[in-house]
Computed example of a mutant assay.
Amino acid sequence: MRTIDKRLDAHVKIARVLVTRAPGLTLPFEARCKSRLAATLDTGEEVALVLPRGTVLRDGDVLVADDGGLVRVSAAAEAVLLVRAPDVLTLTRAAYHLGNRHTPVEVGIDYLKLEYDAVLADMLTRLGASAKQASLPFQPETGAYGGGHRHGHDETFAEDYAVAQKVFDEHHGHAHSHEHAHDHGHSHDHGHAHSHSHSHSHSHDDGHDHDHCDASCSHGHHHHAHR
């Protein structure tokens, strides 16, 4: 039995003919989230899937077996709810409420797709959306709730991460600047500590108790910034 233990990064260029000729591995979403799996290729060959933990396979991924052979991943058709709406606002509200329930969702330009659930179908209908059962491949957004992990080779992930990191860096940089100014203020002569604390408290009337902030407070601020 061959073991499949590697996934090629998207930037690795492989001749299209080699990918086309590679045997397929068709799996539903739940199976594509497993890093250890006994599976059967579309050719009928039984294989062992042994990938790094946290791997979530996507439709079109190319895997490499221990003998160097390639395997092409396909998303299997499965029971899903196909959600559409008469307007963008209704579709956005549907996505918001599904996110609140930690539901894996595939996001399209004008549709949402999720694993079939009669209760969620009723909720979506009451919100004004159309939720119809269908048998289709399911490839949800992954990373936020209940769907494994995204990986850096995903172009959309890279773009989302760059935006999020920029916001974090801006906030983190401000936090360091604020702490530096605060620490500097406490280096004043002890005899002026009371008057300095009084003026500092008034100039930062933002709900934070700067006068009594100690090491644990600073630690909590860092924890908040990094979350």
Rank of each mutant, 00 (worst) to 15 (best):
L124I: 05
K132Q: 11
E30A: 15
G44W: 07
S199V: 08
H210A: 03
V71D: 12
K166V: 04
V107D: 01
K166C: 12
A65W: 03
L70W: 05
F138W: 07
S135N: 11
A31P: 10
H97F: 13
T90F: 08
S195H: 04
H210N: 00
R93W: 00
G152N: 01
Q133H: 07
A77L: 02
C213Q: 14
A193Q: 10
H188S: 01
A65T: 05
Y111T: 01
G173P: 11
N100F: 08
K13I: 13
G147Y: 01
V163M: 08
A164N: 14
R36H: 08
S195I: 12
G191Q: 12
Y96K: 06
E45C: 01
L57I: 05
D154W: 10
G220W: 10
K166P: 05
S74C: 11
D61I: 12
D67N: 14
S216G: 07
S216A: 13
E179S: 03
H186S: 02
H11N: 06
G143A: 03
T20Y: 02
S201Y: 03
D67S: 09
T156S: 09
H97G: 00
I4D: 03
R72N: 04
A175L: 15
D189L: 06
L49K: 04
P140W: 06
D67Q: 09
D59H: 11
E46F: 11
A181V: 05
H198G: 00
A144N: 04
A48V: 10
L70C: 02
H210Y: 14
R53F: 10
H221I: 04
H176G: 00
H190Y: 06
H208Q: 07
